[in-house]
Nucleic acid binder design. Structure first.
Length: 472
RNA sequence: GCGCCCUUCGUCUAUCGGUUAGGACGGCACCCUUUCACGGUGCAGAGAGGGGUUCGACUCCCCUAGGGCGUACCA
């Protein structure tokens, strides 16, 4: 066997954990697990202006929620600045890099001129071979990599195949800023090397960067890791994923009532496939995952399918697990009445859940459906619901609704007692009630000796009724 | 502008030169159900366009079109 696989996820903490980033992390994680290797986490916080501690926490929480556990302690890139500078200087010593004294203004005009003459806007190498003695006074130089002037760089990518870049299109980019801090290009290479990363799996927006990074690897004579540049997620219109189209943090999905196992399953199928398999567990995914299964084209985010997958996992879930998620979700969203109601009626909610699960696509819908249990009485009953029942049973039903709605307590015995009393007042006898919460009120006579029993579930605007028949 | 990447039903995808181009979501119809769901069955729905290569192309090559990414002392 070859050396063990080490992958990494390297987000920059400048906001929430983007859903696209989460998918990238998922693939890196799945590959590492499949290969029985390690999955490392590196926080790329070298941009001191935009990095925040809150964003770092959001990354930890997002990954944890999804169940993507990283191995060891996360690496904070900024803390490695000295090491980055050290490598920059080593490159200098090796003659693979040089000081550049250009001012930002000079560089700007350089780009403009290049663009005006139809050339790629790249650095012209004016300090490449100049002697430092010619340096202007008082200017802190940057260090630029000495990119090959001719030839080509080939990125041998697991997803994109062999991608060839002519070096003439790659300029002498900056690796160390004038303030001595490293640029992304340098920091990534040094860290990936030092962390022993064997497989870089990241978004294909980094494909061009890969060529630049290879120049650094070559300059240090380091081995270039395997690479897999996965296509980005697009919005429904094929363009960049916008916020209204789902470009949200994973926390937002949790708040919308999606289960982590559903997110994993859905995200996995976005750009990756294992034959025709659609629904699978994380263990199955780990077992099946391979870089060959990754697609080359960008995938569009589709809420409808996510909902479907989520509905599947809600149906599959154990009631006590869902109950915990419901309580936590209500708490997180500040839905105090729901939170209190759920907590105070745990037994009833747990009993009701099997009936509720097939009717909900999200945890939020589950909470809405459970509200009948702790809703404030009397309930407002909508006319259409009453109209559903035909003929002379109308009166019975509306009467029943008001009786039930006026109940202070919707415990099963209370409901049963109320319904029984009602039935008797209409000259009917209620038979044995089999399932708690399927109990309720008499609507009409279905056939001699059999009459309708129903329970109302849900909020006024979303009345769902579960029918049952009881023999008198 | 320049460079690179991508392109199968509306969406996610299978196909790795020879298939009636398969599945899933969504849509529609029907069944189940005294509601709503769940479940079941069926229907409609795709190889961007044009050239090649080949006995044979969705599959390989080229061009065009469309889309995406990159082009910073951001990551």
């Amino acid at each position: 066997m070859t050396k063990p696989v080490v992958t990494r996820f390297a987000p920059s903490p400048t906001g929430y954990l983007h859903i696209g980033s989460a998918r990238t992390a998922l693939f890196s994680w799945a590959y590492a697990r499949n290969m029985q290797g390690k999955f490392l986490l590196r926080i790329e916080d070298t941009d001191r202006e935009r990095s925040t501690e809150g964003a770092v926490q959001a990354i930890y929480e997002g990954l944890s929620w999804l169940g993507l556990k990283w191995d060891g302690e996360p690496t904070l890139q900024f803390s490695r600045a000295a090491r980055h500078a050290e490598v920059a200087n080593e490159l200098l010593a090796r003659g693979q890099a040089y000081y550049c004294y250009c001012s930002p203004e000079e560089l700007a005009t350089m780009r403009e001129d290049a663009r005006a003459s139809g050339k790629p806007p790249r650095y012209n190498g004016m300090w490449r071979d100049r002697d430092p003695s010619e340096a202007p006074q008082g200017v802190m130089p940057v260090i630029r990599i000495k990119a090959p002037l001719a030839g080509e760089i080939t990125v041998d990518d697991h997803v994109q195949g062999k991608v060839v870049f002519k070096t003439e299109n790659l300029d002498d980019f900056i690796i160390l800023r004038s303030d001595g801090t490293p640029t992304y290009m340098l920091a990534v290479v040094v860290d990936d090397h030092d962390m022993g990363v064997t497989h870089i799996i990241r978004g294909d927006d980094h494909l061009t960067n890969a060529a630049r990074q290879i120049i650094i690897y070559n300059g240090m004579e380091w081995e270039v890791p395997d690479m897999a540049h996965i296509p980005l997620i697009h919005g429904p219109d094929g363009a960049k994923l916008s916020k209204r189209h789902g470009a949200l943090g994973v926390g937002a999905y949790r708040q919308m009532g999606y289960l982590p196992e559903a997110m994993i399953n859905y995200l996995a199928r976005l750009g990756w496939s294992h034959g025709d398999d659609e629904l699978f567990s994380v263990d199955q995914m780990i077992d099946w995952f391979s870089l060959e299964g990754l697609n080359k084209g960008a995938a569009r985010f589709d809420f409808a399918k996510l909902e479907n997958v989520n509905g599947h996992y809600i149906r599959q879930a154990k009631p006590d697990y869902l109950y915990g998620v419901m309580v936590e979700t209500a708490r997180e969203l500040g839905r105090d009445r729901d939170h209190a109601g759920l907590v105070a009626n745990q037994t009833t909610v747990l009993a009701a859940l099997p009936e509720l699960q097939p009717r909900a696509k999200t945890v939020l819908e589950l909470i809405d459906l459970a509200q009948f249990i702790y809703a404030v009485r009397p309930l407002a009953v909508d006319a259409p619901a009453a109209e559903h029942v035909a003929g002379d049973a109308q009166a019975v039903l509306s009467n029943a609704l008001s009786v039930l709605g006026a109940l202070p307590d919707w415990s099963v015995p209370a409901i049963e007692a109320a319904v029984r009393g009602l039935a008797e007042s209409h000259g009917l006898k209620l038979g044995k009630v089999a399932q708690p919460l399927r109990v309720a009120l008499t609507g009409r006579t279905v056939s001699p000796g059999v009459f309708e029993v129903m329970v109302l579930i849900g909020k006024e605007e979303s009345l769902a009724r579960i029918g049952d028949q009881v023999k008198a």
